[in-house]
Design a protein around this nucleic acid. Structure first.
Lengths: 177, 177
DNA sequence: TATTTTGTTCATTTTCTATTGAACAAAATG
DNA sequence: CATTTTGTTCAATAGAAAATGAACAAAATA
């Protein structure tokens, strides 16, 4: 008796070669990233993509991610774009396959650096300008208030500087991996 | 002719004493915190509360926060509880007023320390256990896969240790303010 | 003890974010 | 050049998180 595959199964086999179902160990690693992403305010789908690429031996194409993680095309496309912009994923060209393949960038220093820069440093930058603007708006306040608010502005300036100074240090400590 | 206040106006005056409307400078400072909170995934109302306490000369009662920020009772109550648990706000007892008054804790070290501990360190802790569990689940994988996944686990362990080591350093650098 | 003040809790609603999937585009294939 | 493959974009939807306000409780006050 011939073995007959449904369309869907054939597609899956064709696209993936083998190993469709996520292995328990893979699920766990992905789950780890999903949790951590939650703490950092990153969307689940992005964490799933990064997680699967992280555990996978070889670079994966978008189709594979979609099938194995049950993502929509849109999520996969956008998630990969986001990760690429962040520098958390890089593309690899695989001979004889015209699909773009992705692999996880697994260097903590790069990851943390990019993330912190994008997420935190941005805000420092425009807070500088904003603080100047605030300092110019304190005339209408009572004496006590004005004095106090100016102290606060100074404090915020110090915080900002401290934050800036810490960053390169952190990156150095996250060093070689 | 007598001046007659509506109930509402009377209440406001009674509760607040003066200075109901937020000053532009105050709005700006609050806005700064709101933005930053966004980057850290904290709710707007919490940032508003902290922001107003931060710019205010004197500790404020919940009523005042509700009126000046147009918060609901629920948000104010929950927000203050959250900030207190985080150590970002402390209560002050004001003579002759039985309402609890709050003031912002404005020491960067304390703020950052508590926040990082609550937000990040927690996840490190249970990832430790989880990684052990994953390591025990790699038998069913192909040789290549298993080898690769074990490398990844080692890497994650190093990341975790690096993260832990960085924290006290950061706090020391955020030092005296 | 009745009333007011102060504050919490939590079910419901609102608001915001992430995800989906259809429509579209560009390139490769036959 | 029609078709398939690969991928992007974006309006609509689903889902999650935050805010609301009514109900309740505890303590102070009259």
């Amino acid at each position: 008796m011939d073995v007959v595959f449904t369309e869907k199964t054939k597609d899956i086999i064709k696209a993936n070669g083998s190993a469709l179902r996520l292995q328990p160990a893979e699920v766990e690693v992905i789950h780890l990233f999903v949790q951590f992403a939650g703490a950092l305010g990153q969307p689940r789908s992005v964490a799933e993509i990064y997680g699967l690429l992280f555990v996978s031996e070889k670079p994966l194409a978008m189709d594979t991610l979609i099938e194995r993680l049950h993502l929509s095309k849109g999520s996969a496309s956008q998630g990969l774009k986001y990760l690429q912009d962040l520098g958390a994923v890089r593309t690899m060209y695989v001979a004889g396959d015209r699909r773009t393949h992705y692999e996880a960038v697994a260097e903590l220093r790069k990851l943390a650096g990019r993330f912190l820069r994008q997420q935190i440093l941005t805000h420092f930058e425009d807070s500088e300008t904003r603080l100047d603007r605030i300092a110019a708006q304190t005339q209408k306040l009572s004496d006590g208030q004005r004095k106090h608010i100016n102290e606060r502005i100074k404090l915020l300036r110090r915080w900002e500087r401290a934050g800036r100074r810490v960053l390169p240090f952190v990156l150095k400590m996250l060093g070689g991996d």
